[in-house]
Amino acid sequence: MAAVAALYGEFKALGVEVLSLSTDSRFVHKIWQEQELSKMVEGGVPFPMLSDAGGKIGTVYGVYDAAAGVDIRGRFIIDPDFVVRAMEVLTPEVGRNPAELIRQVKAFQHVAKTGEVTPSGWEPGQVTLKPGPALVGKVWEVWKP
């Protein structure tokens, strides 16, 4: 969570709000912030930390591990029309890569704005593709891995 918080300025600049959820109570969130997160990131976690007590929300998002009683690591990108654009779910031992999350947000925002599509690993400024009959069989002319 601290890694996402550290990039919060970048999320804000992209107009993205972040919400975090775990099955911990709001009281535990507060003390975690005070005791640990605020020492990892200046000012601590700046976004709302939600309590998914009982894992009901996690269940609906497919991340609740009933045997362990916790939500496993999962993140979802939701667009302004309230559509889920991307999801990534990991078993808990491996942390996420917030830089890749930001890359995907930028790509989805570009796609939503322009109607173009972004090839593998696209970063802003790189070539995009304009789907249509003229491009069929010709992708190799404009893009290679």
Partner: peptide
């Protein structure tokens, strides 16, 4: 607006 939601254990 764009929203990212993050679950964690």
């Amino acid at each position: 607006q764009w929203v990212v939601i993050c679950f964690y254990p």
